[in-house]
């Protein structure tokens, strides 16, 4: 199937649905129940209908939950036929449906795998940098959001370090910068950014990154950067400023 015509479910940065012809759905967003069903199918590996109904509608009796599931499936089929396949007691997203959260996991697995060659080290575009379903309060979303956040931050930092080692400091700065923007108080992201800037020969920029982080940490937490952060710049040529005060 050509990429442009593959139906896709977007969960990062907010819910969106693209149908098989590549366009977004006409009219308003799909009803919230349809969004929740698709998100749940995309994020869960358990295809059992009973379990799905129980987790999507935990507060209502079982038969109501099943009725809700049936009517939500019906509405989904009106909106976007062919997105979901049912076989017996199982319910899954159809084979060709793309999910951006899966793309994020695949990217993270690739750039953190030591066997990946330099060619596989790519800085992700903004489509993979959004939060999972921002604002959704469901516990399964909250937990998955935090897991994906940690996965992405760690992968960005490791990617930046690998790009630095591969002599591609410009891309390393972009990767580490994405992690720093996502979490301005995260030291490991700043360490990767400092390393990338030093490798690019931009010692002044590295010191600026360090100094900004040091001040933010002091103001927010009353704490100082760890020795592994201060050590990065102590090793650089004698600058005007030393380590933390």
């Amino acid at each position: 199937m050509a990429l442009a015509t593959t139906p896709s479910v977007r969960l990062l940065g907010g819910f969106a649905l693209r149908t098989a012809d590549g366009s977004s759905l006409p009219g308003p967003d799909p009803p919230r129940a349809v969004q929740r069903l698709l998100a749940r199918l995309a994020l869960s590996r358990c295809p059992d209908r009973d379990v799905l109904a129980g987790r999507l509608w935990p507060e209502v009796p079982e038969d109501r939950a099943h009725a809700n599931l049936r009517s939500t499936l019906w509405r989904l089929r009106q909106l976007a036929p062919g997105l979901v396949e049912g076989t017996g007691t199982a319910l899954v997203l159809a084979g060709g449906v793309r999910v951006d959260a899966h793309d994020l996991e695949a990217w993270a697995a690739r750039v953190t795998d030591p066997r990946t060659g330099d060619g596989g080290l790519t800085v992700p575009g903004p489509e993979l940098l959004g939060r999972l379903l921002p604002g959704w309060p469901e516990e399964w979303v909250v937990l998955e959001r935090e897991r994906l956040r940690q996965l992405r931050l760690h992968a960005l930092e490791l990617l930046a370090d690998r790009l630095t080692a591969a002599g591609r400091p410009g891309e390393a700065v972009r990767a580490a910068g994405a992690a720093v923007r996502e979490e301005p108080l995260r030291e490991s992201a700043h360490r990767s950014l400092v390393r990338a800037r030093l490798a690019a020969g931009d010692e002044e920029g590295a010191r600026r990154v360090y100094e900004r982080f040091r001040q933010l940490l002091a103001v927010s937490l009353g704490a100082a950067p760890s020795p592994s952060m201060t050590g990065l710049l102590a090793g650089a040529s004698s600058g005007s400023r030393g380590g933390p005060t």
């Binding site: 009973d50 379990v51 935990p58 079982e62 604002g135 309060p137 937990l143």
Partner: peptide, 23 residues
């Protein structure tokens, strides 16, 4: 928006208890 631990959860295995209760 970053709380790692959600609300509605009981002490013992809320996830299991939250499923449907009979087949």
């Amino acid at each position: 928006d970053r709380a790692a631990v959600p609300r509605a959860r009981t002490a013992t295995g809320g996830r299991r208890a939250a499923g449907v209760t009979a087949r």
